[in-house]
Simulated assay, not measured.
Amino acid sequence: MSLSETRKRQNKLKSIFTKFVIGLFGIILILWSMPLSELDITTIRGQHIGLTGRWTMTAIGLIIIGYSVFYKPKLPSKMVELEDTICPTCETPFGIGEAPQNELCPRCKVLLEPLKGFYDRHPELKDIKSEKN
């Protein structure tokens, strides 16, 4: 699995989790308001909420649920810019925020990789560096 596919999968999982939490908040708001029961008392910080206020809470809960179901955020497919990267071919490092927008090395036109763990993934390059010294 490539780096960009992994990032897309992580972003999609974050989006699904966020939608779930927002939808759950809407459901809790509707259940808390008890709109169909005229005898139950709903309170917020000790203050009683009337029937109109409870129906307003229900409407807001439905809007929140609709938002969580139908809203599709743009998932960023680009590499996170707050990460050091390196070119696997020429081994040119790019600091935080210095990586090109297209994630390609300007010299080699190769996809950049995160610097963290780079030499663990490419032990043959680590040996070349130590032989030069």
Rank of each mutant, 00 (worst) to 15 (best):
I27G: 15
G26I: 09
L104C: 12
I41Y: 09
L112V: 00
P35R: 05
D84N: 06
K78V: 05
S130R: 11
S15G: 04
S2D: 14
G66L: 11
F94P: 00
E113D: 10
M79N: 01
A59K: 01
L125I: 04
L3Y: 12
H122P: 02
E113I: 00
I44E: 11
W32G: 07
I64A: 12
R45C: 13
I16A: 14
G50T: 09
I86P: 01
E131A: 13
V21T: 11
T56M: 10
T85I: 02
T58S: 11
S15V: 10
S2I: 00
K19Q: 15
T89A: 13
R54K: 08
V69W: 12
L51D: 05
R107N: 06
G97R: 02
P73L: 11
P93R: 10
S77T: 15
L112E: 01
L31P: 06
G117Q: 11
H122Y: 12
Y71T: 06
D120S: 15
K126F: 10
T43Q: 14
G53D: 10
N102W: 06
M57T: 09
F20Q: 08
V110Q: 12
L3A: 01
K74T: 09
N11F: 05
M34C: 07
L29K: 03
D84G: 04
T92H: 11
K12R: 12
K132Y: 07
G61S: 10
P88D: 06
P93D: 09
D120F: 04
T42P: 03
R121C: 01
T52F: 10
P93Y: 12
M1F: 03
E91V: 04
K132C: 03
S130M: 09
Q47D: 14
Y67M: 09
D127P: 00
P106V: 01
I16S: 07
S33Q: 08
F118W: 04
S37D: 08
S68D: 15
L104Y: 03
L3D: 08
I22C: 12
E91P: 01
D120N: 13
T92E: 14
S77A: 10
E38A: 08
T52G: 14
F70P: 13
K8Q: 09
F118A: 02
C87R: 00
S37K: 12
L31N: 13
K129C: 05
I60L: 15
L75N: 09
M79I: 02
P35M: 06
I128F: 01
L36K: 13
Q101A: 08
L75M: 14
F70D: 14
S130W: 08
R121H: 08
P93N: 06
L39E: 15
D127Q: 06
S68Y: 11
I86H: 02
V110T: 10
P114D: 03
I22T: 12
G26P: 11
L125P: 00
L75F: 07
I60R: 04
N11T: 03
F70T: 15
C90T: 13
G61F: 10
G50P: 04
I27W: 11
